[in-house]
Amino acid sequence: MNFAEIMEKGGASMWPLLFLSILALSTIIERIWFWSRVLLKQGQVLNRIMDSAARSWEMTPKIARDYRRHPLGEYLYAPLKLNNPDPDLFHLALETAADDQLNTMRRGDKLLEAVVALAPLLGLLGTVLGLIKSLSNIQLSDLGTSSTAGVTLGISESLISTAAGLIVAISSLAFYRIFQALWFNEMRVFRKSGSDLELIYRQRWMALEDNRIPMNSNLETSETVDN
């Protein structure tokens, strides 16, 4: 059977299934393109920003700003663009940016979830409607005669919608699980890189605070001697 015959014999539920399959396919293609760009540049973004933070902190905001189009770069740039924040504010900026970027990465998941849930039900509905149509023409006197041959063919055709619904649902579910796995892995990368960057910043902050304390103490001592 060609595509037109499948759509015709599958019944009215095949059109909603076709619409769901187009939505799922477009979402899958867009997510594949998104994740391919994220994963290909992620190592470069992470290495450049973290190496700069460890060697020359003053250059780190500029390097992170150059990678703002990458989710990881935008995440790490969020606290770096602040003007000498205290460590608690630095941590809060990281958390807020992580929530924003991770939510963006889950775009399309709700649509795939809806397709996975609706496609089998639509397929089953098409089959039930096909069975009702086929069995409504059967009379008890026709059982065992050649007049029931068309009914058997109608029942087999009504199962096309169920098969189509399952194909759409299974395909969508497979890619949904793949995208979920990528998202969980990205969440671990965000947590690790954010913790490392925050640790470097806290060490730098403490070093600056230690340098300020002796200067203030010497100033107070000299004032006391003068008095």
Score class of each variant (00 low, 15 high):
Tyr75Gly: 07
Tyr75Cys: 12
Tyr75Ala: 08
Tyr77Trp: 15
Leu80Phe: 06
Leu80His: 01
Asn83Val: 11
Asn84Thr: 11
Pro85His: 02
Asp86Asn: 11
Pro87Gln: 03
Leu89Ala: 13
Phe90Ser: 01
Phe90Ile: 01
Phe90Gly: 00
His91Trp: 06
Leu92Ala: 13
Leu92Gly: 02
Leu94Asn: 07
Leu94Thr: 04
Asp99Gln: 14
Gln101Ile: 10
Asn103Thr: 06
Thr104Arg: 09
Arg106Lys: 14
Arg107Met: 11
Arg107Leu: 07
Arg107Lys: 14
Asp109Val: 11
Asp109Ile: 10
Lys110Val: 11
Leu112Pro: 07
Val115Trp: 10
Val116Gly: 02
Leu118Glu: 02
Leu118Arg: 09
Ala119Glu: 03
Pro120Cys: 01
Leu121Tyr: 13
Leu122Cys: 00
Gly123His: 00
Leu124Asn: 10
Leu125Gly: 07
Gly126Glu: 04
Leu129Gly: 04
Leu129Asn: 12
Gly130Val: 05
Leu131Asn: 03
Leu131Pro: 07
Ile132His: 06
Lys133Met: 09
Ser136Gln: 11
Ile138Lys: 06
Gln139Tyr: 09
Gln139Glu: 14
Leu140Met: 14
Leu143Gly: 01
Gly144Lys: 03
Thr148Gln: 11
Val151Glu: 00
Thr152Leu: 15
Leu153Tyr: 04
Leu153Thr: 09
Leu153Arg: 09
Leu153Pro: 00
Ser156Tyr: 05
Glu157Asn: 15
Leu159Asp: 05
Thr162Gly: 03
Ala163Met: 10
Gly165Met: 01
Ile167Pro: 01
Leu173Gln: 09
